[in-house]
């Protein structure tokens, strides 16, 4: 670790990402004094952590690790209630709180009486998150919490974390070696190089658009341009509303493609002027909610080259043509 200095803003997710040996886990453990820094200071709400007794400090900071680190000899409910017990809460109150949290992280309360071995890896990791949140600490440290589970479970755990964070607004420092995870979860991402030097600290979209140097560029990997689009809004995308036709429409149209829509306004398929008898597949996105990446992806799924804008209920609100997408992409490229 060499001269590393950064700030994790209150209520945001700061991700530390880098190759192995970059000291990201070490940095994390310095925050709760599992490792003491030889030099320098770490401030928590302006108070140097070096001045706080380690067990007391740690009870006020949630911690989630890779294999969840659950206590195999304790039932799930007692695992979650670990820190409340340490803080001397009344047993009943601690357990009630634990049951609340199990539900909060999306676990069946029936699992409360089981032992960790009886749960899947993904479930154990959720318990790990619930345990870290049990005493409602303002700060959460997460050390590669999702890297030991399979990709599908990982995605759902990531989504769950973002959902939880939108409700709880914790100050989270999250360590990972997976740049995609960093970009997905981080409000800000700190890329570290070997030796614990900070290569770049920026919002994900800035990181993708303007990598500070070759190391960061290489670490970000392929498809940087496409991945950047996930931070470009579709709110301003120009939509056409004159390209739809009701089901059973058999008239002529000057347009090469028409979107056939059912009685409730939901898309059915694209009708090409060349082969009016067949319906071709379509892709949708929700303007404002989904990113340009999703809009572009939707266009690429259809031979029409257009993507269908729908509202939250799946009703068509318009069509983004290739022209409209081109225009938006050109704007995005400009910065």
């Amino acid at each position: 670790m060499d001269d590393l200095s950064f700030e994790a803003p209150t209520g945001e997710i700061t991700v530390l990402v880098g190759p192995s040996g970059c000291g990201k886990t070490t940095s994390l453990r310095m925050i709760n004094r599992m490792i003491d820094a030889s030099e320098g200071r770490i401030l928590l709400d302006g108070v140097p952590v070096q001045g706080i007794d380690p067990p007391t400090l740690r009870r006020g900071i949630g911690y989630v690790i890779q294999q969840a680190g659950l206590f195999p000899h304790r039932k799930i409910v007692d695992n979650v209630a670990t820190v409340p017990y340490l803080l001397g809460w009344d047993r009943k109150k601690a357990r009630t709180r634990a049951m609340e949290l199990l539900e909060r992280v999306g676990l069946d309360p029936a699992l409360a009486g089981r032992y960790p071995f009886q749960l899947s890896g993904g479930q154990q990791q959720r318990v790990g998150v619930a345990r870290a949140l049990a005493a409602d600490p303002p700060v959460l440290l997460m050390d590669e919490p999702f890297s030991a589970v399979d990709p599908i479970v990982r995605t759902s755990l990531q989504d769950e974390l973002l959902r939880l964070q939108s409700e709880l607004n914790k100050t989270i420092v999250f360590v990972t070696h997976d740049i995609d995870e960093a970009i997905k979860l981080g409000d800000r991402v700190a890329v570290l190089r070997v030796g614990g030097r900070l290569a770049q600290l920026a919002e994900p979209k800035t990181l993708l658009a303007e990598p500070a140097d070759d190391f960061v560029r290489e670490f970000l990997g392929h498809d940087r341009g496409i991945r950047r689009l996930q931070f470009v809004s579709t709110a301003g995308l120009r939509l056409r509303t004159d390209l739809t036709a009701p089901e059973g429409f058999s008239g002529d149209s000057p347009e090469p493609w028409l979107l056939v829509v059912d009685g409730e306004g939901r898309p059915v398929g694209w009708r090409s002027a060349a082969r009016p008898g067949e319906l071709e597949p379509y892709g949708t996105f929700v303007p404002g909610r989904d990113s340009m990446r999703a809009a572009l992806d939707a266009a690429l799924l259809s031979p029409s080259g257009c993507s269908v804008a729908v509202d939250e209920q799946g009703r068509v609100v318009g069509v983004a043509t290739r022209n409209a997408l081109d225009l938006a992409l050109a704007e995005a490229a400009d910065g």
Binding site: R58, R59, Y63, G69, L70, F71, P72, H73
Partner: peptide
């Protein structure tokens, strides 16, 4: 006693004695 269990006991804020009595010895 698995290392990650010991580590997480430390991180949760167990004192060394309590960690021994409540985590390591039972395991």
């Amino acid at each position: 006693v698995p290392d990650h269990v010991r580590q997480s006991a430390v991180a949760m804020g167990f004192t060394p004695l309590r960690r021994l009595l409540a985590v390591e010895l039972p395991l």
